[in-house]
Design a protein around this nucleic acid. Structure first.
Length: 601
RNA sequence: GAGACCAUAGCUCAGCUGGAUAGAGCAUCAGUUUGCGGAACUGAGGGUCGGAGGUUCGAAUCCUCUUGGUCUCGCCA
């Protein structure tokens, strides 16, 4: 709606300029926003025309302003400030139509059909099945889930997929440690979550391997070469490698162990996803796709896209994009990471012919995706042009990087539990247990808001510092603050209906004429354009900053203006209607960035 | 050595395809409740936008160079 007004004004200014300059050979007027709201809502700088006319831009602004004012023009008030031509939109007259749109469309307000008919596959999360999720995954999952919601809001047909990294030597490591040390222990028996249980054996392996290595070194220093060699041949790492070979050869015992432990981990991860509000439409498993990847590479070899090195390995020369050679199949015929990813991409396009596929993967893999996409193009897949790597930076801690070796990795489940518990403390200390109903559920939803908002407000490409203590802060620019605004507005509306006041979009919008009201109306009407912008850049932070802006403005408004006790019944109705519209837009925005809406908290 | 990403207030971050006096939050200091949720609101101090050139009427934003940081350049995933 606001877009329409803006483009009408742009046309109007453009036409006036044409008349003023006396030709249509001039740059389109640029549009901006004045630095202060009282100056207006749209700004047209006149500098560019100063040169053409050989005149002072201030004079141009004044004369064009007069030219427009003296004839018919779109609704709004013109003024000038220096070389700027400013338009003040009549927001209160905008409101009645806007309110009808927002309240009428409800949850659909802000959605559009710009990606209608587009099939977008979105890959994210992609855990290993040897340990639980950590904070890094949480940024990935938050981004993936949010981008999916944003693309859907733009009309795209989105398929969320997860690729489970369930094979490889790292998986064998936890299996081997389990076999060696567990004595038949199971998650059921210890009461542990499956992913944590398996993760414990992965850590156990690492320590074990370190111990043995130290012993080997000791023996070598003592000169006991034979014994050292013997120990080396039977070291944990050597045994893990042998286990991998047995796995690939289909050894039933190894496969049975693998199935059992994978299930434990996946059951655990499934629970974490559920707790975090993450879901997928389809799962892919590396164990299913790696062989297919191999056959595709061999096909490419026949086609001459790849070549066989003297040692028997299959490679591709990437000199055409300024890169080195890249191995696709080892000399012994086994596959590597990229082989599997090639297979997965091709299989996915067969399964569900997407227009584009987005990989949400950390920026450290930028090189990998550059190579992957290029190879798919060279294999002749036209759809490879629609592949995109949504790269995001690392999550660091205030103390520095997370390092698994130093035990500084923040576990996802632990973090969520910690945040929930802090939220719970807050509910209890405020004496709101009765009000919120299910305290546990409410705490969890506050924790999610805190987490998702904190992770999504930072531009994806940047590394970020996650401070667990600061993230749970309940005041300031945080997820809980936004939720709180939603709850306060809900509370007002609830009270209104208890008092028998009806809320309808049929109100006199012209009564909403103070600065905050005007600002709110313009914000609400700008929301649909932002939903589009967020999709174009795959950037949820567009939505988070908008939501904060709305909440902050409403907070200020609410502080200074009475709603239920406004001067006249007509004003009460108008303000209630505004509240309803603000609440609806907040809710709609929340849904795009993983902030659960709470009626009360 | 080559490439990618990043550098904005004490700290954590915004800043849309170049526009007016570079903005929030936290922290610090000072205030606001005879009111619908104080998890709130208001105000103050705090900046050479890493540095140097260039393009432009105009640069945090675009270009070049440079400094610093992170990551990558594996027959690991």
């Amino acid at each position: 709606m606001i877009d329409k007004i803006k483009s009408e004004w742009k046309d109007c200014v453009s036409k006036a300029l044409e008349k003023y300059i006396g030709s249509d050979n001039f740059p389109e007027p640029g549009m901006g926003v004045p630095p202060k709201p009282e100056m207006g809502d749209i700004a047209f700088p006149m500098f560019a025309y100063a040169k053409i006319k050989g005149m002072n831009p201030v004079k141009i602004a004044n004369e064009v302003c007069e030219l427009i004012s003296s004839s018919a023009h779109p609704a709004g008030t013109l003024s000038t400030a220096g070389a700027y031509l400013n338009v003040k939109i009549d927001s209160s007259s905008l409101f009645s139509e806007l309110a009808k749109t927002i309240i009428g469309q409800g949850d659909s307000y802000g959605k559009n059909s710009s990606l209608e008919g587009k099939k977008v596959m979105l890959e994210f999360s992609c855990p290993n099945t040897n340990k639980p999720l950590h904070l890094g995954h949480m940024r990935n999952d938050s981004l993936g889930e949010s981008v999916a919601a944003i693309l859907k809001a733009n009309g795209a047909d989105v398929m969320k997929v997860n690729l489970i990294n369930n094979r490889g030597v790292h998986i064998c490591k936890s299996m081997l440690a389990y076999k060696e040390f567990a004595n038949g222990e199971t998650p059921e028996r210890t009461g542990e979550k499956g992913d944590h249980f398996v993760g414990r054996y992965y850590v156990r392996f690492a320590n074990w391997s370190k111990e043995v290595e130290a012993r080997i070194k000791e023996l070598e220093e003592k000169g006991c070469k034979q014994e050292a060699e013997k120990l080396k041949a039977d070291s944990p790492d050597a045994r893990a490698q042998r286990m991998l070979k047995a796995w690939e050869d289909g050894d039933e015992e190894v496969l049975a162990l693998w199935r059992m432990m994978n299930k434990w981990t996946l059951d655990g991860l499934e629970q974490s996803y559920k707790d975090m509000g993450i879901s997928f439409d389809r799962y892919y498993y590396e164990s299913d796709t790696y062989k297919f990847g191999k056959s595709e590479v061999l096909k490419g070899l026949e086609q001459g896209v790849f070549f066989r090195e003297k040692d028997g390995s299959v490679q591709i020369d990437l000199a055409d994009i300024g890169l080195d050679k890249k191995v696709l199949l080892r000399k012994d015929g086994t596959t590597i990471y990229i082989t599997q990813d090639l297979g997965t991409a091709i299989r996915r396009h067969e399964d569900w012919p997407f227009d584009s596929m987005i990989y949400v993967v950390a920026s450290e893999q930028a090189y990998h995706f550059k190579v992957l996409f290029h190879i798919l193009k060279k294999l002749g897949y036209g759809w490879a042009a629609g592949l995109h790597h949504l790269s995001y930076g690392m999550v660091n801690l205030p103390e520095g990087k997370m390092k698994s070796r130093e035990g500084t990795v923040v576990d996802a489940d632990d973090l969520l539990a910690e945040l929930s518990s802090l939220a719970k403390d807050e509910i209890i200390s405020k004496g709101r247990e009765a009000l919120v109903g299910d305290v546990e559920e409410c705490s969890r939803k506050i924790a999610l808001a805190a987490l998702n908002y904190y992770l999504l407000q930072v531009s994806p490409s940047r590394d970020m510092i996650f401070d667990p203590k600061k993230s749970i802060s309940f005041s300031g620019n945080t997820g809980p603050y936004l939720e709180y605004m939603g709850a306060r507005i809900s509370s007002i509306l609830k009270k209104a209906s208890e008092e028998g006041l009806s809320i309808s979009p049929d109100v006199d919008g012209s009564l909403l004429c103070n600065e905050d009201e005007e600002h709110l109306i313009l914000l609400l009407s700008s929301y649909p354009a932002l939903v589009k912008q967020a999709a174009e850049g795959y950037d949820p932070s567009v939505i988070t900053s908008f939501l904060y802006d709305v909440a902050k403005t409403f907070s200020h408004y609410y502080h200074d203006n009475q709603i239920l006790k406004a001067d006249t019944p007509a004003l009460i109705s108008a303000r209630l209607c505004l509240c309803q519209a603000v609440l609806q837009v907040l809710k709609n925005g929340f849904a795009l960035v993983g902030i659960p809406f709470l009626e009360s908290m």
